[in-house]
């Protein structure tokens, strides 16, 4: 397996610049390990020719309808594919940010929790990724072939992920609106839901850490960069 563990010092980068380069930097940020070995051939970003009725997961159409409804009701800002310049890297960046939040929350909630695999599919961009939680550590494998056997399958959209990260949308509302779906054994699903719910809860923990250490790490900077509402 190829593990990308390159550390980048970006402490002097302005927050506005940081936001635009964030997705790319997160891809090589070693703060959460990125396993790039199982890069799939067939994802929406790398294949220019997705096929008709080739949704990555059965819930895709349901989530697509829910996304439209949420956008129409002004509860969600959709990512416009025509204006989305960061593409694949942007999606992976959001997954990375999500993973980082998990990691923090896990340390708070259940550092010795069960080993869980999460197969996450972003249905709007047809991107499968996997987060493995083992011994209190997280490993993100972006761009995998599909759901791994035994995993909890989380299906949602890049827009939903962004909205939750930016504090525009609560986890509870995302679930209630059918914007995020879970599949797997109840106990595991419940654990994952708890993790996500805690991860995206608005918190000032990041800024307080930053103020304590003086020099923010990339991880902290990334999170800070994501806090403003995306328009």
């Amino acid at each position: 397996m190829t593990q990308l563990e390159i550390k980048v010092k970006v402490s002097n980068v302005a927050p506005s610049v940081m936001k635009s380069i964030l997705p790319f930097l997160l891809l090589i940020d070693g703060s959460s390990r990125v396993d790039d070995s199982s890069r799939a051939i067939a994802c929406g970003y790398h294949v220019a020719t997705p096929r008709f009725l080739n949704a990555p997961h059965p819930t895709t159409y349901v989530i697509a309808v829910a996304l439209r409804k949420a956008a129409d009701e002004k509860c969600l800002t959709l990512i416009d594919p025509k204006k989305n310049t960061t593409g694949y890297h942007g999606a992976v960046g959001k997954l990375m940010a999500f993973t980082q939040r998990f990691e923090r929350v896990m340390q708070d909630l259940s550092p010795e929790g069960p080993s869980i695999g999460l197969s996450i599919v972003l249905v709007d961009v047809t991107l499968w990724s996997r987060i493995v939680i083992k011994d209190g550590k997280l490993k993100l494998q972006p761009h995998v072939e599909g759901a791994a056997s035994g995993d909890v399958v989380v299906s949602t959209a890049e827009s939903v992920l962004a909205a939750m990260l930016y504090g525009e949308l609560s986890f509870q509302e995302a679930v209630a609106r059918g914007l995020i779906h879970f599949e797997g054994p109840d106990i595991k699903v419940s654990h994952v839901k708890q993790l996500i719910a805690s991860s995206i809860r608005p918190t000032n923990r990041i800024s307080s850490i930053a103020s304590q250490s003086g020099k923010p790490t990339l991880k902290q900077n990334a999170s800070v960069a994501k806090l403003p509402r995306k328009r």
Partner: peptide
Amino acid sequence: TLPQQIIQGKARLEGDPLILA
């Protein structure tokens, strides 16, 4: 993709979307 057209409001579904799945 069809899901993208739904998301962008260019395709409208009425009824059970899971039929497509």
